[in-house]
Nucleic acid binder design. Structure first.
Lengths: 146, 146
DNA sequence: TGATATTATATCGCGTGCGATACATTATGT
DNA sequence: ACATAATGTATCGCACGCGATATAATATCA
């Protein structure tokens, strides 16, 4: 018979390797992002901005699956670094319009090498990467549609 | 031709869904672990202890892919909660021997329901769960053997 | 219109994670 | 034996991530 506590063994968890790999990824990015004066979380905020050009805090929170209590201080730091600007929406003054500064836009070119540097550090096959991606988004999408 | 900045799009990252799912998992566990007076990280520490019965900080750090500056305060909190005890190894006084208290041992029975509660919240097929597990450990093992 | 609800952002406190560093103990080499 | 290195743990400072709560602006509805 199976051991009573088998379900509580670390090796039998799916949550733990996700947690550990997530920490590992942040560590891997650090040396590359240090050169851009960005943390990992700041980097993904910048990604959204590079793509959207202009956005607001609410959109960022949803795109990154974060809460305002995480994003508000992040935006403050990015503004202090001179990468973004925050202005009030004229039509709805609750709305915080976030735009890239010149330095913020220029950062995108310097960031171009990051994805390939990171890719070299992980050795998954194309199929593995795609399957991992698919399963993770299945979990995220499921959560979003609740 | 492919857009110049395609590699910097959030949707083209593998790192981001791992990060987002990891955060999601911690949120999912919270209500169940609150009843045990454990955080997620404290929970995985307890898992190692339930399995090993006795261990030291170094073993914990390696098992959980964490550094001592994370684990030391964790152990302090678990001791304050009365779940573990810390004593010096007689043979090597650098070594911190960590053991479960009676309350710590009893907690394992109360934790037995957690894995199944969590499993119900995620809807992966058996194959998807196994493949996810395999790929994540491939990444972790690769890192360990460096 | 005016009370109430909703929405978007911000603040507070706590618990991680981590790089850098310090400290005490043991091991090592001459 | 004794200076030096290695090892195991602890401390410090910073940046998240989040639940709870607050605040300001807009929407809703009697």
């Amino acid at each position: 018979m199976k051991e009573k506590y088998a379900a509580l063994r670390l090796k039998n968890q799916l949550c733990f390797p996700i947690y550990a790999v997530s920490n590992m990824i942040t560590r891997k990015y650090k040396p590359y992002l240090d050169e851009l004066d960005l943390t990992y979380t700041q980097y993904i905020v910048m990604m959204v901005l590079w793509e959207q050009g202009q956005t607001n805090e609410k959109f960022l929170c949803e795109a990154l699956c974060l809460k305002s209590n995480t994003v508000t201080p992040l935006l403050k730091k990015l503004r202090d670094k001179g990468y973004i600007e925050k202005t009030k929406d004229k039509d709805d003054e609750r709305n915080l319009v976030i735009t890239l500064t010149k330095a913020g836009k220029e950062l995108q070119d310097r960031a171009l090498s990051v994805p390939e540097c990171i890719a070299k550090e992980f050795h998954l096959t194309q199929d593995e990467a795609m399957e991992l991606y698919r399963i993770l988004y299945k979990l995220l999408d499921e959560e979003k549609n609740k």
